[in-house]
Design a protein around this nucleic acid. Structure first.
Ligand code: SF4
Ligand code: SF4
Lengths: 137, 137
DNA sequence: TATTATTACTACCTTTAGATAGTATATTAT
DNA sequence: ATAATATACTATCTAAAGGTAGTAATAATA
């Protein structure tokens, strides 16, 4: 019951870019500041650029910055961008097409936590994460 | 954001054993009834036997059955038995020692869903899953 | 234009979860 | 005893996630 490392990395990096949005940042800086594996991060950032979440510019003075306003970027958008959208996630007992009329044995117990997670992911924006600048990233 | 297949399998198998607790069942039967990979299941059941969740007896008329009363087996016990206890799970941003005083950027948003999941896992017993025998397994 | 700092691309390596194969061992009905 | 039916054990394979390495392309600046 956990998020993937890739999801953690993406959320942390994008939060960092928002917190320091006055300028752009190279992968190398993000790597050092957030202690994430450098090469893995380049791949991830390339992907996030393709998906339109960040702007990437090469060459001297290049680097990465948010492509959209942070209050329009929801956590589910980030998961979507790395291929872990809510729909692609299998549920607790792994059945595909199930609903309240054809539930698995765990459905009643799982439905509430599941809704809370989905609500959190669909209503939390990057901007709302950064209100307290003291929190870890 | 999902459970492991192993966790799914364990929950489903144990639920089946409880639902049909009048007798014991061979791995082969469980494999056929629940459509789980046979050899993988033998390993899993051996593990669950070692951890004291099921009784395994070899030979003709042997098979598997619950070792404890179903109302003493909580979902977290099952996860524990397969090495996925709550403590071993990294949290949403993957920090180790964090608390309300030294939180990550997502802590405030994550703390409620997290509690709901933990509550569900620590209060739901196998027995409580089976009240409606019509649900899928 | 040459240099330097950056992202982009391609290929490969490592670890882990999941799954498979074959054999040994135990139990019991006959 | 023997045959049949189970679990237990050991070794291996596969696929996916995570991570590394080297090089090409791009852009600013000196
Ligand atoms: S908990 Fe509900 S949604 Fe999830 S697999 Fe079971 S029936 Fe389907
Ligand atoms: S959400 Fe809370 S418990 Fe989880 S990593 Fe962040 S600070 Fe730690």
């Amino acid at each position: 019951m956990h998020f993937s490392k890739t999801a953690e990395y993406a959320i942390r990096v994008l939060s960092y870019l928002h917190r320091h949005h006055e300028t752009s940042h190279s992968v190398n800086v993000l790597h050092q500041e957030l202690d994430l594996p450098y090469k893995y991060l380049t791949k991830l950032m390339t992907e996030l650029a393709k998906k339109g979440l960040v702007n990437a510019s090469r060459g001297r003075e290049g680097g990465l910055s948010l492509a959209r306003s942070a209050d329009t970027i929801y956590l589910c958008d980030i998961l979507e961008a790395i291929g872990e959208s809510l729909e692609h996630e299998r549920c607790i007992l792994g059945f595909d097409k199930c609903d309240a009329l054809n539930p698995c044995a765990l459905h009643d117990q799982w439905v509430k936590p599941k809704e809370m997670i989905e609500t959190m992911l669909t209503t939390t924006t990057l901007a709302s994460l950064i209100q307290n600048k003291e929190t870890k990233l």
